[in-house]
Design a protein around this nucleic acid. Structure first.
Length: 214
DNA sequence: AGCACGATTAACT
DNA sequence: GTTAATCGTGCTC
């Protein structure tokens, strides 16, 4: 996509040494605070029913977990919903919120350790006609600039909850693609944790790629 | 059984 | 800046 290509140039993104290779499970077997920033520049790929690809470059993430993180769904232990957070790394944690939106996470850290990375934004990469159709008549910059918008654009819903993103036959997976210079990555508090106690409400566990001012 | 609230978005004023 | 939409989740009674 032209818009994405320009943005990649503007932030001086460099091809990842393993660009095009699937992200292995072992790479995800680390704490969420390590995996979340490392996932910036990775490609999230959805294989459609007709075999075509819809994808985007991850440009915003948040870290959740482990147990002591009162901003994480694991705060009440392995409840029916949160049990997926305790799964082996590489599974999808997809949940429904506000009565209408799906949010997509990658389960990380060792099995039994509740942790995940929320994918909050992408730069559209492939399958643009499908993304445009799913996101309506909106400017491209608003296609995938929020966690529920990402799920709309790639048609990710509860059917993907718990699936193994590292399986060879996966219809949803991650691959290495780009690397962003550190000065283009900003951090800040996680979004939307309005009733979460400190320090969890303000801890800077959100990472975002921001083009420099001209 | 009832309740408060949510890792949000789009459409308002 | 404010607010409706809309229902699953987990807590309290």
């Amino acid at each position: 996509m032209e818009w994405t290509r320009k943005r990649l140039t503007r932030v001086a993104a460099r091809p990842h040494p393993q660009a095009g290779q699937r992200i292995p499970r072992a790479w995800l077997a680390r704490p969420a605070v390590q995996v979340a920033p490392a996932l910036l520049g990775a490609r999230l790929v959805r294989i459609e029913d007709d075999g075509s690809r819809t994808s985007g470059i991850i440009v915003e993430t948040e870290a959740y977990g482990p147990e002591e993180d009162l901003g994480c769904h694991c705060r009440h232990g392995p409840t029916p919903r949160a049990r997926a957070l305790y799964a082996p790394p590489g599974r999808a944690y997809v949940y429904f919120t506000y009565g209408m939106h799906w949010l997509f996470n990658v389960v990380v850290a060792a099995e039994g350790v509740p942790a995940a990375v929320l994918v909050r934004a992408l730069w559209p990469d492939a399958g643009l006609a499908r993304i445009a159709a799913r996101r309506g008549q909106r400017p491209p910059r608003e296609w995938t600039d929020g966690p529920a918008k990402v799920c709309q654009a790639l048609a990710i819903d509860g059917r993907f909850h718990g699936v193994d993103l590292c399986a060879a036959e996966a219809r949803l997976f991650l691959e290495f693609a780009w690397q962003f210079p550190p000065e283009t990555v900003t951090t800040g508090p996680r979004v939307g944790l309005n009733t979460v106690p400190e320090p969890w409400r303000s801890i800077p566990w959100r990472w975002r790629v921001v083009p420099p001012p001209r």
